[in-house]
Design a protein around this nucleic acid. Structure first.
Lengths: 201, 201
DNA sequence: GTCTATAACGGGATAGAC
DNA sequence: GTCTATCCCGTTATAGAC
């Protein structure tokens, strides 16, 4: 008899689900081990602490997404348009909406402490890469204006992920893949126009 | 001998400060009563529970801000420009940045549970008022595109408030957070251009 | 209204058998 | 690697003196 997953993976899966549903503080190790059907002590054996578990869960989910963002940016080449850059920035994040990890990402995006702890240098390099690309596409922007507009775009994206359930209610149905692509197109239109707005030199 | 504030106000002040610093879950009633220099039992006497205290703190802070947003919208009149509408939407929120309540508002904006519990109908009516104004200023937008662009703007605004400390830390050299009026102008430029972006009819 | 004291509970973490 | 049992702490909330 071989279990579908080993204990460590079962813990990660359960934690990902519950952190997304109830937040990091709102989820106890007892909740997680019950959901994963493993022993309480297994968490502190495989991970050293709850804090380390949180980091492990986040990195397993967010790593591939950020890799994909950078890959799309590279694929667009050195002469990328603003639309291509924005799509590389927001597309991979929004595409993962409605996947199992989506609620977790929403939690991460809205938790200052966790963001700060886990992503400090990761976000720093990623922002710089995209800021450089924007500098090529919209050279007339001052460095700080460019950074702020990238920041506004990140906010619009994060807000869309974190408030997805509410928006789903507003539009009275479950969004399928087609709607997701349309949503990305909407955000790209909005943010690209924002980057091209006059002023802020 | 008359105390500067009564017990109830001291609790509210301390809670506002600590909730902003450490979050709602991260702040215990013991933390609050220690900071306020009142007895632990006073919280449950004046407020019935921690949850009620959270609501009271939020409403005391956020009420005036939302009132001001609606007042600015009305002051702009029926022929308001997109810039005026966006400024009414984001200005009062960002103006309160660096005031004592700012960290608290950031916490509220990044807690789905609290947002849902405290603001459900409040936000609904406010969104509708601003969506109507946008419909006047940019009539060619479809209702759903209009809603999404307002949502993106709210995200950019929320992200700016919630990430202000982190941004200061990460990009303190590039981003000048000090000038609030300039920051509002930047966001107004960005979002107004986004609302005027072609497509999405 | 405000205090002290404590109840009742759940949390993270760990020791030690297997 | 996995289990049971437990420690120790902090939490919200309340009872009852003043």
């Amino acid at each position: 008899m071989i279990a579908r997953h080993d204990t460590k993976t079962r813990i990660l899966d359960a934690a990902e689900k519950l952190f997304g549903e109830k937040g990091f503080d709102g989820t106890s190790l007892r909740d997680i081990t019950r959901e994963a059907d493993v022993n309480l002590a297994a968490v502190n054996y495989h991970f050293q602490s709850k804090e380390s578990l949180i980091e492990a869960v986040i990195l397993r989910s967010a790593g591939p997404v950020n890799d994909r963002r950078l890959a799309m940016l590279e694929a667009a080449g050195p002469k990328a348009t603003v639309e291509q850059i924005v799509e590389a920035f927001v597309g991979p994040v929004l595409e993962y909406d409605f996947q199992p990890m989506a609620p977790l990402m929403a939690r991460v995006l809205s938790s200052p402490e966790v963001m700060q702890r886990v992503f400090k240098q990761h976000i720093e390099t990623l922002s710089r890469r995209f800021a450089d690309a924007i500098a090529e596409a919209v050279p007339e922007l001052s460095p700080s204006e460019r950074m702020w507009r990238l920041h506004f775009t990140a906010g619009a994206m994060a807000h869309t992920v974190t408030r997805a359930p509410v928006m789903r209610d507003l539009f009275g149905g479950i969004l399928d893949i087609k709607d997701r692509q349309q949503l990305i197109a909407r955000l790209v239109r909005f943010a690209a126009a924002g980057f091209r707005a006059p002023g802020g030199y």
